[in-house]
Amino acid sequence: MIDISENVDKMIEQQAPMTEILWYYFYFTLHYANLLFPFFLFLSIIWFTSKLANNTEIIAILSSGVSFMRFLRPYFIGATLVAIVVFFMGMFIVPQASKGYNEFREVYIHKNRNKVSTQALYNQINDNEIIYVRSFNPSNQTGYDFTLEHFDGNKMEYKISAQYIQFKDSVYSLNNYVKRTIGEREDIIEKERKKDTMFEFEMEDMVPVSYVADTKNLIELNRFIESEKRKGSGNISTYQFNLYKRWSAPLTAFILTLIAVAVSSMKRRGGMGINLLFGVAVAFVFIFFDKVFGVLAEQSGFPPLLAVAIPILVFGILAVVLVRNARR
């Protein structure tokens, strides 16, 4: 409802078809369900276990000789089922939903947004050619200060440069075109005010859309990362962070399960409200850690594996400590 209230005017303005809107909210549901699945699990465990504790049922269970670890077994079974669902959704189902979700927003909601990339962009498009643009505007498919260098082994054969390159009507239009062919004794220079030509690369090779990793399943994402490594892409950390986050999601379900049981298994004077308050606080701190290290991995060269592992390790240690205290 919040998303509808924020975007309904843009959908009407862009004349989005009703069928696409319905598909968008189907993808929307899968996209956010995957993000929030561990926290739904977390809060539901706190709610359920707090009810048991307030009714003194946990004391009765443990007093009958059942160990605390045996008491945890049903929770682990439930967490395992949720982890399996989260794993397969995150690896194979949600990427397709994310593609539909993001494409709809780009076409109908963010259509008039200024999307100029101001950073220098390099890309090795194949074994022999490297392209460069100072900045790129996806809305009009234009790259500024364009350069293409063609090599034969380690030897440059020719270099093409232009003030800007634009993809229009299936051809590339270059303004202030200059081609310098390297000769044995002297170079051959060709100049044209405007030149229309064809290239083997796509405009997306200059700068992939920001959500490209979200739209690929596990197999496609692994291949995409290897391809981007060969090209020398500057976004490798972002793609690797996305991959590691998917692998860590099932582990997150187990850690949050342990924390939720440990926090809510004791009967408190404040009742369920205190447990839920603590649970929401822990969830927000976890999200904060996750976002901070995610930005570090994507923007500062921080190792993506560490960016994913540190929040898991910190909250894993917290879970062990809380469970030990709960057993006592």
Rank of each mutant, 00 (worst) to 15 (best):
Ile255Cys: 12
Leu256Arg: 03
Leu258Met: 15
Ile259Met: 14
Val261Asp: 11
Ser264Gln: 06
Ser265Glu: 09
Arg269Met: 03
Gly270Trp: 05
Gly271Tyr: 03
Gly271Ile: 02
Gly271Lys: 01
Met272Trp: 07
Gly273Leu: 14
Ile274Thr: 14
Ile274Arg: 13
Ile274Cys: 02
Leu276Arg: 01
Leu276Asp: 06
Gly279Lys: 06
Gly279Val: 07
Val280Thr: 10
Ala281Cys: 11
Val282Tyr: 09
Ala283Asn: 10
Ala283Thr: 15
Ala283Val: 13
Val285Gly: 15
Phe286Cys: 09
Phe286Asn: 13
Ile287Tyr: 14
Ile287Asp: 08
Phe288His: 00
Phe288Lys: 04
Phe289Lys: 02
Phe289Gly: 04
Asp290Cys: 01
Val292Pro: 00
Phe293Trp: 00
Val295Lys: 06
Val295Asn: 08
Val295Gly: 00
Leu296Asn: 01
Ala297Cys: 05
Glu298Asn: 12
Glu298Lys: 13
Gln299Gly: 07
Gln299His: 09
Ser300Gln: 12
Gly301Glu: 11
Phe302Cys: 02
Pro303Glu: 06
Leu305Thr: 07
Leu305Val: 12
Leu306Asp: 07
Val308Arg: 00
Ile310Arg: 06
Pro311Trp: 03
Pro311Lys: 03
Ile312Thr: 10
Ile312Leu: 12
Phe315Met: 05
Ile317Cys: 06
Ile317Trp: 03
Leu318Gln: 11
Ala319Tyr: 01
Val321Ser: 05
Leu322Gln: 02
Leu322Asn: 08
Leu322Ile: 03
